[in-house]
Amino acid sequence: MIGIILMSYGGPESVDEIESFFTHILQGRKPSPEQLKPIVEQYLALGSPDPLRTKTKRQAEALQYVLNQSGMTEIKVYPAYKHASPYIEETVGLMIAEGVTHVVTLPMTPFYTAKGVGQYQRSVQDEIEKRELTIPVSHIDNWFLHPDYIAVIASRVKEALNWLPKSAREQSTVVFTTHSQPGNEEKHEEYVKQFTGLAERVATKLNVTNWKIAYRSARQKQNWLGPDIKDVIHEEAENGKKGIVTCELLSLTNNVEVLQEIGIECQEIANTLGIHYVRTEFLDDSIDFIHALANISKEKLSELEVLNV
């Protein structure tokens, strides 16, 4: 049996797990009460369970269904998380126990970085080696320029642009966002290249000429990649733009961090500046995205000669 391990950052299963979740992120160091309070408030403000965790599970279920329905019945998809249970390591153990003979990793982010996707992949490989097994591992990564994925992103941008009033649509800017990284562009050359390349492809597909890239979630008191999305909104308003459409390209699944910064804080800035603001929908477990993932998976598996697909 082929096991696809669908990997994401993870999230708490209940309010009671928020502290332990962030303790794991901080490598065993508990967040202080001052650090924890605003985090808990953000989760409580959702009024629902953590979306990243629940949506990732549904993505795995939906991907397996689509693959199985296409005749690939020997494939099972397992959701796994970096900072929450089921952890990547324990999921590898489950896959082995259930008789998986070839492990295929699939990260829920289109961009590859050594500290991001690379770390996910190493966790899988290390767990197999720790068990002294020779199960082969293959990786589905760097799928950010797959035409099916670009088409899905483009459809979300088009819907967001159409949501703007006609009076603002022609004087609006599409801003593609991703998580910032500490350091300059030279240090993160490949990451910036992937991000910019995807943004350009989506804009070209839609014939959008007024677009920019921006970064979010940079920490203070450090040099991070820029420009910051909030600064870009201010600049565009000063330049006379009537609307902003933001499209997140790294986090494809609904999550608290992006909702807070892009969904709430940027909206408040735009409201204060008197310009229209709309963000694209997360891809989550939407049918077109799942079919895109299925096609990406089939093509990669075929290239790797894992299956006769």
Rank of each mutant, 00 (worst) to 15 (best):
M1F: 09
M1P: 11
M1G: 11
M1N: 12
I2G: 02
I2Q: 06
L6D: 08
L6C: 14
S8A: 13
G11E: 00
E17L: 10
F21N: 01
F21Q: 00
F22K: 03
I25M: 08
I25R: 04
L26K: 15
P31V: 08
S32I: 03
S32K: 10
S32G: 05
E34A: 15
L36W: 01
I39N: 08
E41N: 13
E41V: 07
G47E: 00
D50F: 03
P51N: 01
R53Q: 07
T54F: 10
T54D: 12
Q59R: 02
A60G: 06
A62N: 11
L63H: 01
Y65A: 14
S70W: 02
M72C: 06
T73K: 13
K76D: 08
V77T: 04
V77D: 00
Y78F: 14
P79A: 04
H83D: 04
P86S: 01
M95Y: 01
V103F: 11
V104A: 09
V104L: 09
T105F: 01
M108G: 02
P110C: 00
K115T: 15
K115S: 14
G116E: 00
G116W: 03
G116R: 06
Q119Y: 09
Q121L: 08
Q125H: 07
L133D: 01
I135D: 04
I135A: 06
N142M: 08
W143A: 02
F144L: 09
L145S: 10
V152W: 00
L161F: 06
N162Q: 12
L164C: 02
K166E: 14
K166N: 12
K166C: 08
K166M: 09
V175L: 09
F176D: 00
N184H: 09
E185F: 05
E186L: 10
K187G: 03
H188Q: 04
H188G: 04
E189F: 10
E190T: 12
E190V: 13
Y191G: 00
E200A: 14
A203K: 00
T204K: 15
K205D: 08
L206G: 06
K212W: 10
A214T: 02
A214N: 02
S217H: 05
K221A: 14
K221E: 14
N223K: 14
W224V: 07
K230L: 12
I233F: 09
E235K: 14
E238C: 11
N239F: 11
K242E: 11
I244H: 05
V245N: 05
V245D: 02
C247R: 04
L250G: 12
S251M: 13
L252W: 04
N254C: 12
N255H: 14
N255L: 12
L259W: 07
Q260K: 14
I262Q: 14
I262Y: 07
G263R: 00
G263H: 01
E265P: 03
Q267M: 11
Q267I: 05
N271H: 13
N271K: 15
I275R: 01
Y277Q: 08
Y277E: 06
E281A: 15
D284Q: 03
D285G: 05
F289I: 04
F289V: 05
A292K: 06
N295D: 13
S297H: 00
K300G: 12
L304F: 13
V306C: 15
